[in-house]
Nucleic acid binder design. Structure first.
Length: 294
DNA sequence: ACGGCAA
C-alpha cells in the first residue's frame, strides 16, 4: 500500500507495485512495498506514525540480507547482540539497538552518498521481540514471494548476469550458517541458497567458465576434526566450500573464489604470527587424507 | 496512545 503522497513522479510513484504488506507494531504502521521500474526492483519500507513518516529503500538483492539481520536480532541473546552494517550497491545500512522508557528498539538507517540519511525505528515489541520477529517474518514472505515473479528480460539486466552481493560487516552471515549444522553429510554442491550469504566479497559473474577444477575435493585433518574443501558453483558464481564435519554434524563456510586470495593471505598472516606455537605440528597433526566419496 | 534517531 502506498502512502497518499500524491503519487508524484520522481519518487517512484510510477513504479509498478508487485507486492504490498503492512505490519502494525504497537502504534506504528510499517508498509512494505516491493516495486519495480526499468532500473530493477526494490523494497520500500516505510514507517508511519501519526506525526511522521520515514522510508528506506532496500535494493532487491538486499532483501535476504535484511531477513538475515532481523533474524539475527530476534534469535540472539540480548547480551551479545551488536550493531551491524550492511553495504548494498552504493548505500550502507546501519542497524543499532537502542532502549528508552518505551522499550527496546532497532534503528535501521540508510546512508547514501546523495541523499540525507533516512531511518526507521522498529520497536522490539512487548514480549519476546514480537515486533522484530513479525518484521522478520514479513521480510521472509517477501523474499519467498519475490522469487515467484519472473523478471522481464529487459529488466534487471545487470542482475540476471550477476546478482551482486556485497559485504556484511562481520559475523552475521557466518553465524547463521554455523547455526544450520543440522544437515547431514554430504551436501550436494548445488543445494546452497543460504550458504553463499556468508560472503563478504563481490562475486564474479556466473558466466565465467565451468571448468577449472570443478569437482576437486580435498580433506585435511587437524586433531579430531576433518575439514573438507569442495569447489562448487551456483547461480551467483563459483565458490570454495570449507566444511567442518564432526559425526553427523556439518557446518560450512562458502567462500566465493574472488575472495580466495584474500582468505589465503589472511590464513598466512595468522600462520606467521602464531608460528612459534604451531612449529613442528604441521606434519604431525595436519595431514592430507583421501577425498570423500560424493 | 505512544515515539525513539537526528551523522
Amino acid at each position: 500500500m502506498e502512502f497518499s503522497s500524491g503519487g508524484g513522479a520522481g519518487g517512484g510513484g510510477n513504479d509498478v507495485e508487485l507486492l504490498s504488506k503492512t505490519l502494525q507494531v504497537e502504534h506504528k504502521l510499517f508498509y512494505f512495498d516491493l516495486k519495480e521500474n526499468p532500473r530493477g526492483r526494490y523494497l520500500k519500507i516505510s514507517e508511519k506514525t501519526s506525526a511522521t513518516r520515514s522510508t528506506i529503500i532496500v535494493p532487491f538483492n538486499g532483501i535476504a540480507w535484511f531477513f538475515d539481520i532481523f533474524n539475527y536480532y530476534v534469535t540472539s541473546d540480548d547480551q551479545d547482540i551488536s550493531s551491524k552494517e550492511l553495504q548494498l550497491d552504493s548505500k550502507v545500512f546501519y542497524f543499532d539497538i537502542g532502549e528508552n522508557r518505551r522499550g527496546r528498539f532497532l534503528k535501521v538507517s540508510e546512508a547514501s552518498v546523495s541523499r540525507n540519511r533516512s531511518t526507521i525505528i522498529v520497536p522490539a515489541g512487548s514480549n519476546r521481540d514480537e515486533g522484530w520477529s513479525a518484521f522478520r517474518n514479513i521480510l521472509e514472505e517477501i523474499n519467498e514471494t519475490s522469487k515467484l515473479f519472473v523478471s522481464p528480460k529487459q529488466q534487471n539486466s545487470e542482475d540476471s548476469t550477476q546478482e551482486r552481493l556485497v559485504g556484511l560487516s562481520d559475523d552475521v552471515g557466518a553465524g547463521f550458517i554455523a547455526g544450520n549444522s543440522s544437515q547431514s553429510v554430504p551436501i550436494a554442491a548445488s543445494d546452497l541458497n543460504l550458504g553463499d550469504r556468508t560472503t563478504t566479497f563481490d562475486l564474479p559473474p556466473s558466466s565465467s567458465d565451468e571448468s577449472g577444477g570443478f569437482g576437486v575435493s580435498k580433506v585435511i585433518r587437524a586433531d579430531q576434526k576433518r575439514f573438507f574443501f569442495d569447489l562448487g558453483s551456483n547461480n551467483r558464481g563459483h565458490y570454495l566450500r570449507i566444511s567442518e564435519v564432526a559425526g553427523s554434524d556439518r557446518s560450512s563456510i562458502i567462500l566465493p573464489l574472488s575472495g580466495l586470495k584474500q582468505f589465503h593471505e589472511m590464513v598466512g598472516h595468522f600462520v606467521e604470527i602464531t608460528k612459534d606455537r604451531i612449529e613442528g605440528m604441521t606434519g604431525a597433526n595436519v595431514r592430507n587424507v583421501d577425498p570423500p566419496q560424493r
